[in-house]
Design a protein around this nucleic acid. Structure first.
Length: 458
RNA sequence: GUGACUGUAGCUCAGUUGGUUAGAGCAUCAGAUUGUGGUUCUGAGGGUCGGGGGUUCGAGACCCCUCAGUCACCCCA
């Protein structure tokens, strides 16, 4: 007998958790469809070479590789041993592994677009909700198997796409009840301009990595890190100057315009943000969007506008979504000039936010609306016929599986969160009636069996 | 990959400087009630104290190894 256990960093989702997760996913999916996105699914595994080298050196180490089958074939022993030596030396070899679990949804999507661009109608708008796997050490809120929920628009440079995503975020979060989320916006072009004027464009990555940590480690630590990454004091003080820009969106834009007056890239980034803010403000003045020049985002493939959606401050959960614009999604697969913009929802974190703020509707954890009591053989026969009539009327119902004390049957209903019980004992069999009891209010009423299917179960 | 902490009943945890048959609450099951539960009362089942080795007259406790989990760093969702 083996002891029941789960691989590290994975989890089972119990029925009530699945219901809540599906509620979130269904909400997001409906909004995606409403905005004209189409669903896409790709395999759990990809060829290893599709994934290798796409996520940086660190990322490569975190890809789950799948061992080839048939290594025990005696005819191939020598080859397998040679190949395994290479693995020990830290290299991948097709003899040992040539497939891997997907690491995110973006690269498989890029692969798909590269393979099918002849057939696709551009701009191509797809959404994808699937699990991905990372061989990371698990910790709070981080797992080895988790769901990603992405939407991208590829094959278009228009900023209307960015505006669409801002509105999409707003629709999803308000529908879920997270109305006081915060959407931050910045442009990689502005960060590029910053790098150009202090440090040189080769320091772009160092600067973004460091300032991305600002709200986590504070200004002093960021300055220390910049120093370690090889920037001099003058450069650091102009970065500090940039990071200290504050005020309303308009004030921030004004300050940035002064700062980057001589940078074409900087001015471009600023005007893009202005375009989006103007479009949002005219169309939907309730959308809460703020410029955050300290927003950098880790992923290095972003090249234009970047977004980050943050949970309401009181729950201390942080980012619940993010995204941005990238050039040349499929260049790595030999298909150049397909730009795009995409966003992603952090489903696990949204779940935590909603749980903490108690935003799930009560009805989410209900499935069965009514439980018919089983009080003996002749009674249960009558009950069973009524049960089927309820089901024909689309009322989810079940009968207790065996005759038992009422006490036990009440407890079953309560545990399964069933709002109504229907009692049919010998008396009701005689009278052709039944007792319907609402467990939440404790109120009960007797009605004719023929009227039961039309009873308003809520 | 680096580091810290934790492993005692199905769950949450007690268990004094090593000292008899390892405890509690919740949960489960049975009864107190012959058709109205969620309260209360009584009782029962359930543990090779993560595993292996060592120190000792004696180890759940101390030491070593190992496995598992949690958290932090790196990186990221």
């Amino acid at each position: 007998m083996t002891k029941a256990s789960l691989p590290q960093g994975t989890r089972d989702f119990a029925p009530d958790v699945v219901r809540k997760r599906q509620y979130i996913l269904a909400t997001i999916k409906n909004v995606f469809e409403l905005y004209g996105f189409q669903p896409l699914e790709t395999p759990a595994m990809e060829n290893l070479e599709t994934l290798m080298g796409k996520y940086g050196e660190e990322g490569d180490k975190l890809i789950f590789k799948i061992l080839n089958n048939g290594l025990d074939n005696p005819a191939k022993h020598n080859l397998a041993k040679e190949d395994f030596e290479k693995v020990l030396a830290g290299k991948n070899t097709k003899g040992i592994t040539e497939r891997a679990l997907k690491y995110d949804l973006t690269i498989p999507f890029a692969r798909y677009v590269a393979m099918n661009y002849g057939q696709l109608t551009f701009p191509f708008k797809r959404y994808q909700i699937q699990p991905v796997w990372r061989a990371d050490r698990p910790q709070k809120g981080r797992y080895r198997e988790f769901y990603q929920c992405d939407a991208d628009i590829v094959g278009s440079n228009s900023l209307i796409n960015e505006v669409e995503f801002v509105n999409l975020y707003h629709d999803v979060f308000t529908q879920l009840g997270i109305g006081n989320y915060e959407l931050k916006i910045n442009s990689r072009k502005i960060l590029t301009a910053l790098a150009e004027c202090c440090g040189g464009s080769d320091k772009m990555m160092d600067i973004t990595i460091a300032i991305d940590k600002l709200d986590k480690i504070g200004l002093e630590k960021v300055k220390e890190e910049l120093q370690q990454r090889g920037l001099d004091n003058e450069q650091i003080s102009s970065i500090e100057n940039y990071l200290s820009i504050s005020g309303s969106n308009d004030e921030k834009l004004h300050a940035a315009k002064n700062l980057f007056a001589s940078s074409e890239t900087g001015k471009k980034g600023i005007s893009e943000i202005e375009f989006i803010l103007t479009a949002i403000n005219t169309e939907k003045p309730t959308v809460n969007i703020t410029i955050d020049f300290t927003l950098a985002r880790g992923l290095n493939y972003y090249t234009g506008i970047i977004f980050e959606a943050k949970a309401p401050a009181e729950v201390k959960i942080g980012s619940i979504g993010g995204g941005g614009r990238y050039d040349d999604l499929t260049g790595l697969f030999g298909v150049p000039n397909i730009p795009g913009v995409g966003i992603s929802f952090g489903v696990d974190r949204i779940y935590d936010v909603m749980e903490e703020l108690k935003l799930f509707p009560q009805t989410v954890s209900q499935s069965t609306k009514a439980l018919l009591f089983n009080l003996g053989q002749p009674e249960s026969q009558v009950a069973y016929q009524l049960l089927q009539r309820l089901r024909r009327n689309k009322i989810a119902a079940e009968i207790f599986h065996e005759p038992a004390k009422m006490d036990k049957q009440f407890k079953y209903a309560e545990k399964k969160n069933i709002p109504y019980v229907i009692i049919i004992g010998s008396r009701e069999v005689m009278d052709k009636t039944c007792v319907v009891k609402n467990l939440q209010t404790g109120l009960q009423q007797t009605l004719a069996q023929t009227d039961l299917p039309d009873f308003p179960f809520i």
